[in-house]
Design a protein around this nucleic acid. Structure first.
Lengths: 256, 256
DNA sequence: ACCGCCGTAGCGACATACGCAACGATGGTT
DNA sequence: AACCATCGTTGCGTATGTCGCTACGGCGGT
């Protein structure tokens, strides 16, 4: 663990919450302002931060550039984008594309709802797999060994009264997800927010991303949200096909 | 200049070019792999990078989160976004929103062209003020002292045969920009790319951002690009008004 | 003029970061 | 099974880079 790097990263993270002065950053990070200034100098030299005319430091252009490049490296995002735009245009609900990251999902794209109720999520945020629809579809088809390792690492943190906090119950939920091909989050991750998600698959059939639709209960009930399932399954199928996925053919001689 | 932080930032920048292994990063940064691993560990702990199953490190979720938050902190971006979306929908040309950053502009939003010719620019990239339309409008109205300081710092790097590389010529260009209220870049920044730009002003009348439209010559001639000027001036005026700007009223008793 | 705030420079001490060397884990081949 | 190559990791001693302190300069406001 590199001490000075860790401190610099804390500075960057603090600046994510808003611009700050040298003194504010020194207080936030807990080191002398000379030390902070040295770190800030280095960060500024590489354009990770900049200082305005009022003595405040801000996140700089390099962060945006790297994020933009990093997102471009996530292939599924580029493939999904036009499909999601069309879906969002048609349905107007907050839609996320996410990937699995350890025991969490990370949102790698977001399309805003068309109404005035906005969700506080954003690209780059992470959420636990066990309480999100996206998480469930991303882990449901993991090979047994991988799923066990993941479940071992999961803390099943209770986010709301509805959160699944029991390993056996979560396994049962994943069985259900596998059977129906989509997942739900009924106020399990955030109070008053329901969500449905479906997997995007690649050529190997593996779920490489999830598309999920989130709606506050006051805007749309869970039952109304289910009306979006056909469209959701349709768009994830289209994206999957563009990712090289092909449906498994029914085996001959066996019941469909 | 913090050595270990500098190295870590080099790692992040390298990963912007694509995923890399520990050995590749050690070679790129020029230090022992143990050192790189320590830095990567710290970066990974804070989610700035992650490692995939094939030994490769990638830029992580925190970069995207910080970028997203940092862009939200740029107020003019939020104000301009709906206007630019409408403008882009109507005209379908690559459109940038940029801010001044020292002797450079930094692109803080980008709307893609509707055709298949895409521009290599991206959010977070910087470009010199003297060879870009956006740069010209951002510095044209600077107070004299500020402009002098900026010009002193400018190297007038020659990007193309058309680049203005002479201080006096650039000053003359800025005089013209002030008079007409918009600026051009006739293959001054990149060969075969023309650009027009106009300022977004805040309540104080100061140019706080620029909207620019860039088009490759093969797609649209400079003269055709000029057809977009009325719409460009109109959208920048609308954004400016939303930023609190109000047109200066003609003085009474003087010619209009 | 004085004051407050911010940024900066120089210094010595020492803690942290460094590279080296060795080893463990993994996967592939024979 | 053994062997090999690659990657990641650990432990060590050392010296370099980082640290906080102190003092000072610059700037803006009164």
């Amino acid at each position: 663990m590199s001490q000075s790097l860790g401190k610099a990263l804390q500075i960057l993270t603090r600046l994510g919450a808003g611009p700050a002065t040298l003194d504010e950053l020194a207080a936030a990070v807990g080191v002398h302002k000379t030390t902070v200034l040295r770190l800030l100098r280095t960060l500024a030299d590489e354009h990770f931060v900049f200082r305005d005319g009022s003595h405040r430091y801000h996140l700089g252009a390099r962060i945006h550039e790297l994020s933009s490049r990093g997102l471009d490296q996530r292939e599924v995002r580029g493939i999904a984008a036009p499909h999601l735009t069309t879906f969002n245009r048609a349905h107007g609900r907050t839609t996320h594309l996410s990937e699995l990251a350890g025991t969490e999902v990370v949102y790698i794209d977001k399309l805003e709802s068309h109404d005035h109720v906005r969700m506080a999520s954003r690209i780059g945020l992470r959420a636990p797999v066990h309480s999100t629809a996206a998480g469930k579809v991303l882990v449901a088809d993991l090979p047994v060994g991988e799923l066990d390792v993941l479940l071992d690492a999961l803390t099943f943190a209770k986010a709301t009264p509805n959160t699944i906090t029991d390993r056996a119950a979560f396994r049962a939920e994943l069985t259900r997800v596998r059977a129906q091909g989509w997942a739900r989050d009924r106020e399990e991750n955030e109070p008053s927010i329901n969500c449905v998600g479906a997997p995007v698959r690649d050529a190997s059939g593996r779920a490489v991303a999830a598309v999920s639709v989130s709606v506050p209960d006051i805007v749309m009930t869970y039952d109304r949200l289910l009306d979006l399932l056909p469209a959701l399954l349709s768009v994830t199928e289209r994206i999957s096909r563009d990712c090289g996925w092909r449906p498994v053919e029914p085996r001959k001689g066996h019941p469909a």
